[in-house]
């Protein structure tokens, strides 16, 4: 990009972050269907200050379709490792999956999501986990719009703000078949199906 160095006025960001930010400068196209990315992070725990990401699963949704080959599945190397959560998510410290360091995972995640609207169940937690990792890379926070499937369901049913539903409950209500729960890409896939059903019901374009 010719104008690249004009923008680097305030702070000298790394290249990956520049690339990521550029996605948000394009005008949204009317002709192309809006891209959604449904994602889920498996983490060592629920404390975003202490816990870290173990794996990320993400898949794109266009219109009424989930695009299988537009998906991402990452397993992270880590130093902090709790044996008690391994029984839930099944990721062993030295598992057979190819593992990458957190920085590389985050870069690949940003490359994948681009300016898509992020979808997740309790998505704010997952976004916060990513933001913490971004902080460790000394860059800004995620810029993407986001939608939470829990909030979507509340809206669809007219529930109070404090009436929350778990992903398992939504699966049951919306008749989404569960399997592979508690792997990041398994949960991302299930959440994506929940999202497809809610999206149609709420008539979201």
């Amino acid at each position: 990009m010719v104008f690249d160095w004009f923008k680097k006025v305030s702070k000298d960001y790394p290249k990956f972050w520049e690339n990521y930010l550029e996605n948000f400068e394009q005008e949204p196209s009317e002709l192309q269907p809006k891209r959604y990315v449904v994602f889920d992070c498996e983490t060592t725990g629920l404390d975003h200050r202490k816990d870290v990401i173990l794996s990320i699963g993400a898949v794109a949704v266009l219109d009424n379709a989930l695009i299988v080959n537009d998906s991402l599945e990452l397993f992270l190397k880590q130093d902090l490792y709790k044996t008690e959560t391994a029984s839930i998510h099944g990721i062993l410290k030295e598992g057979k999956e190819e593992k990458i360091v957190e920085a590389e995972a985050i870069i690949r995640f940003l490359e994948f999501i681009k300016n898509a609207t992020l979808i997740g169940h309790n998505v704010n937690f997952d976004i916060e986990m990513i933001n913490q990792a971004l902080k460790r890379l000394n860059v800004g926070k995620l810029k993407n719009d986001s939608m939470d499937t829990d909030a979507m369901y509340q809206k669809f049913k007219g529930l109070q703000e404090d009436q929350h539903s778990t992903l398992d409950e939504l699966c049951k209500i919306l008749k989404v078949e569960k399997s592979d729960r508690h792997t990041a890409s398994g949960d991302a896939y299930i959440t994506a199906l929940v999202f497809l059903k809610l999206k149609k019901r709420l008539d979201i374009k």
């Binding site: 699963g57 299988v68 080959n69 998906s71 190819e98 592979d180 792997t183 890409s185 398994g186 896939y189």
Partner: peptide
């Protein structure tokens, strides 16, 4: 690259 979703469909 591993794609668990594709495996599930398979």
């Amino acid at each position: 690259m591993k794609n668990s979703i594709a495996e599930r469909i398979a």
